[in-house]
Design a binder for these strands. Structure first.
Lengths: 253, 253
DNA sequence: CACTTCGTCTCGTTCAGCGATACGCTGCGG
DNA sequence: CCGCAGCGTATCGCTGAACGAGACGAAGTG
């Protein structure tokens, strides 16, 4: 549920066009953009031209695609960037200890946004992407963030509809609440194929000075061989170390 | 030298405002944005409001900062994303073998744009940033890209002014040309404190099907202890492995 | 207190953006 | 071979969104 941009302004329409792109597509045709955005054909045509001129979009054979200029801009976003810079060494350590897919995520609304994802050749094929979103309630990172967040947010999420992603997604508020309770007791959150079939995960929150966790770190692997319990200590240690570093450097939300 | 956006359109001005942000600043005030962009105060004020409404900008105490929404958009940029996804395991391997800062970069104009930078706790403090730019002629990655690029580009760069970044930057076209020649013979490029004092580096090109290299990989470290010659084999192997994977999957420019 | 700097807001003008419409091209089915 | 549909592109008046000069209060500074 990404907020609806203001369609009465040029800027809003431009952003709408940009957001119409999805991770899976290489190039999107004009007609397809018209379909996805609901904007007038002539408008999309003209604005796309402007976006190309401003290096946010590129022309390719099949239509348009988001350009490297946008990538450059995005990597300037301050919070994500500073978090990533500080966190990277800790994520590397964690990867070396586990050799499984390591995630760093922050909360945005009722979603987790992945700020980093690192993995090796034998990594589980997870739906997560750096810069991608997943609902809080069905991921280990999300649960870690939720468990340590304010009661208000927790109530919001628990009372809202809990989208089912797989047969294992926890959609019963009561069960989820108990799981979250357990997270605060143990300091780690688990996910058992709740966001994607075949994927299990363990996460720990990165706590700052404020009430809300700054981020969360997770280790994920394929369910057929990966035992998340085995990595509890490593994840917790990584998150704690990152947290104390962030607190020392005073990088608050 | 980032291309000048069209200032006669709303979109151009908006992008100009976004590009006015630099990596080092947490928050930028309205007045500062006015100074940097040269736009009218009222215009910046209004457009900033629109940008906030569209989640590309955030209000913070000290003014504005680029928001997480922009980060999300940027990570959708197709070329960078697909390259990153395929490359990550190889970069991880390289990091584990060297435990030094590993870069992945692509060419854009006469610059290299870093698509990834991974490093541990003892990493050299380099000016490079994921999403950041450096001139081709003063970095190992840049030289690797340049040496294997078309003769036209090489001539362009060699004939243009070679910006001096440190006392060690190679600014003589003749010397640089000979270095590039050597790169094609050995398959690796070196940098000896040419982009930043205290930083040395070795890089290898990632070759695709086409004429131009798709990217380049480098390992960097602090000059006082890091011997780039010791990592020639590792870098070359990583770049070759990534190249053949990309060729197999047919991810062209 | 005088002066500057900053953020915000107003307002009349005007031109950039709007969308209906048209056109040429391509591919496809009849 | 023709007809049609879908696509990208171009045209063109109309209109309201964006423009920038300027006013204003708040806060800081000497």
């Amino acid at each position: 549920m990404t907020g609806p941009a203001d369609l009465d302004t040029v800027l809003g329409k431009a952003v709408t066009i940009l957001r119409a792109f999805r991770a899976e597509d290489r190039a999107v045709s004009l007609a397809e953009l018209v379909r996805r955005t609901g904007l007038h054909k002539a408008t999309v045509h003209r604005l796309s031209g402007d976006l190309v001129a401003n290096r946010l979009l590129e022309r390719v054979d099949g239509g348009y695609r988001l350009s490297g200029g946008l990538f450059e801009l995005g990597m300037l976003a301050s919070l994500e960037r500073s978090l990533l810079e500080v966190a990277m060494p800790f994520l590397q350590d964690l990867y070396e200890r586990t050799h499984e897919t390591v995630h760093l995520g922050v909360r945005e609304g009722h979603d987790v946004v992945y700020v980093a994802k690192i993995g090796g050749h034998r990594q589980a094929k997870a739906p997560s992407r750096t810069g991608g979103r997943m609902p809080l309630h069905c991921t280990a990172i999300g649960k870690a963030l939720l468990a340590y967040a304010g009661a208000g947010l927790r109530r919001e999420v628990l009372s809202g509809p809990l989208e089912r992603r797989t047969p294992h997604t926890v959609v019963a508020p009561g069960i989820l609440r108990r799981q979250l309770q357990r997270v605060t007791e143990t300091g780690v959150a688990f996910e058992q194929e709740e966001s994607a079939v075949g994927l299990v995960c363990v996460a720990a929150p990165v706590l700052g000075r404020g009430d809300e966790p700054l981020a969360a770190i997770s280790v994920a692997g394929p369910s057929h061989r990966f035992r998340p319990e085995g990595h509890v200590t490593a994840v917790r240690a990584a998150a704690a170390a990152l947290g104390s570093t962030l607190r020392r450097r005073d990088l608050l939300r």
